[in-house]
Simulated scan of single mutants.
Amino acid sequence: MDAIDLLVNRHSCNQLSAPAPSGQVLDNIINAGLRAPDHGGLTPWRFIISEGEGLNTLSHYFRDAAFNLGKAEKDVLKATNAPFRAPQIITVIARIETHPKIPESEQLMSAGCVVMAMQMAAQAQGFNGIWRTGWFAYNDHIKQKLELEEKDEIVGFLYLGTPDVSCKKIRQLNTDNFVTRMDS
């Protein structure tokens, strides 16, 4: 699959099973993320890879956070089960720092580019995934359990694995609806 084909046919898949990326394939995914645009070379990203027992730990964090928020029993159960949608989750964290020339928003956008690059690298190597956030990404209990610093932000949970189904192609969009041309 060439790069243009990969990018214009990008799609997420939410039905994933083992195996998850590992070894050189996982290294490629991480390295693709590390090549994201990065104004000033701040590398404002960190990763937590959860698989096996790590998914159980993440499940406990999600469950406790839902319970602490007073969510309904069905929602606590949904939160408890969320990490088991895939055999691997990479939590991508924007490690924001105060910088005189590089706004926090640029650091956050850079971390978002990391997630996209990692998902594309997974797909290019025969895996797939889905980028999720939801309330989990903004919850103080989860941030504390993951030992994030005060200014850190969870940009997303990248669920990765082997597609269980043929993932639906995304709808084609008409570029004219999104482009304004400024010709001379």
Rank of each mutant, 00 (worst) to 15 (best):
A3Y: 13
I4P: 00
V8I: 15
V8K: 15
V8F: 15
S12V: 11
N14D: 12
A20D: 01
L26I: 06
L26N: 03
I30S: 03
G33N: 01
L34K: 09
A36P: 03
A36R: 09
D38Y: 01
H39Y: 14
G40M: 08
F47N: 13
I48M: 10
I48L: 03
N56W: 12
R63N: 05
R63D: 04
R63Y: 15
K74L: 08
V76N: 00
L77R: 04
A79E: 02
T80W: 08
T80Y: 10
N81V: 03
F84V: 06
R85T: 02
R85V: 00
I90H: 02
I90C: 03
V92K: 01
V92G: 03
I93W: 08
R95P: 03
T98N: 13
T98S: 14
H99I: 08
H99T: 09
I102H: 02
S110Q: 04
M116P: 01
A117G: 07
A122G: 04
Q125A: 11
Q125W: 07
F127C: 02
G134I: 07
G134R: 09
A137I: 12
D140P: 06
K143I: 07
K145F: 03
L148E: 05
E149Y: 14
G156T: 00
G156V: 05
F157I: 01
F157P: 08
L158A: 02
T162W: 13
T162G: 13
D164I: 02
D164Y: 05
V165D: 08
V165G: 06
S166N: 10
C167F: 01
K168F: 02
K168Q: 15
I170V: 13
I170F: 12
N174S: 14
N174D: 12
N174Q: 05
T175I: 13
D176I: 12
N177V: 11
V179A: 08
T180I: 08
R181H: 13
S184K: 14
